[in-house]
């Protein structure tokens, strides 16, 4: 294999693994939007909160497994609580009200985190070493491999849930038509709460892998910004779309960094996803896999 081609594959693989980690976070966003039509502007802050919970538990000399269990419980509780206290009273209000509420939640979390934890970046060590892993021509840091594996596992589990379980089918029915779902005996509010709790679970895992990669401080919330190009690309309500969208964004970033940055002196990685997002918005506003209204006359 030529050196050029090797470089290309290395960029692709590294981009794909980071991209899968974006997908994981985007999945939280999609779950909520799909079931409840709410746009969650606090998804990045959910991840930050999860990271902070884990480092707090680890800081108390507890083993990692305790950290994982605690963060899962806390984030599920947080999802349920948020739906109950903040979002349910907004049911039936304009979409903007919900958006504003999530922006408010984001601001509160970003303010609170440093208040409780201090402002310095805390490490979130995972027992996976830091020996790079060779995959073909690429070498990836182990955390990227772990992050990608976790993301793929979650996608498999959620695909199964929505296709095969009765709860998953009911949740899709709610997403399709809330009024009819109610009339079929489905407690719509309970499913809303479930969607937020599921976003909590996804964020817990996102907080662990992203926290381990970047360190935990208030900046961790910034990974949430990548959610938007990913879901615009994949479709706000498509689980598969979040997966593919994440992969594409990760790869585009990586290729931009590898090929363009040397000429322009860096930084293309940070805006390339948004350029792509705007292009997609112009060509396919519902995303690559998003649901179009089925039209029949």
């Amino acid at each position: 294999m030529g050196e050029d081609l090797e470089f290309f594959f290395a960029l692709m693989l590294s981009g794909a693994s980071i991209g899968l980690m974006y997908s994981l976070i985007a999945l939280g966003f999609v779950l909520v939007y799909k079931a409840t039509d709410a746009i969650n502007f606090a998804q990045g802050e959910f991840v930050m909160l999860a990271g902070m919970v884990v480092v707090t538990v680890l800081g108390a000399e507890a083993p990692l497994i305790a950290g994982v269990v605690v963060v899962l419980l806390v984030m599920v509780g947080f999802g349920f609580g948020l739906e109950r206290v903040v979002l349910r009273p907004l049911l039936g209000r304009p979409v903007v009200a919900v958006i504003m509420a999530t922006i408010g939640v984001a601001a509160v979390l970003r303010g609170w985190g440093p208040l409780v934890l201090g402002i310095e970046t805390r490490a979130l060590p995972l027992p996976i070493g830091d020996e790079p892993i060779n995959i073909g021509p690429a070498t990836l840091p182990p955390i990227q491999v772990l992050g990608a594996v976790v993301a793929v596992l979650f996608f498999l589990v959620f695909s199964w849930f929505f296709k095969k379980s009765r709860m998953g089918v009911a949740m899709r029915a709610v997403a399709d038509n809330q009024q009819v779902a109610q009339a079929m005996g489905i407690n719509v509010e309970r499913y809303f709460a479930l969607a937020w709790a599921m976003a909590g679970i996804v964020s817990a895992l996102g907080g662990i892998v992203w926290g381990a990669m970047l360190g935990v401080d208030v900046q961790l919330a910034l990974v949430g910004l990548k959610v938007f190009p990913v879901v615009i690309l994949g479709g706000l309500d498509s689980i598969g779309g979040a997966l593919i969208g994440g992969l594409i964004i990760g790869i585009v970033e990586s290729l931009a960094a590898g090929y363009l940055d040397p000429y322009v002196g860096g930084g293309t990685k940070d805006f390339a996803p948004y350029v792509l997002m705007i292009l997609v918005l112009m060509i396919r506003p519902y995303g690559i896999f998003g649901r179009r209204q089925i039209e029949r006359v």
């Binding site: 009765r166 899709r172 029915a173 038509n177 079929m184």
Partner: peptide, 25 residues
Amino acid sequence: VQVFEGRRVFENLTTEENLIAGGHV
């Protein structure tokens, strides 16, 4: 149970999934 005017099936679900959702209780 109410059957709505204009049918209102769960459009993104298959026939069988619609029935499964209908049997939720």
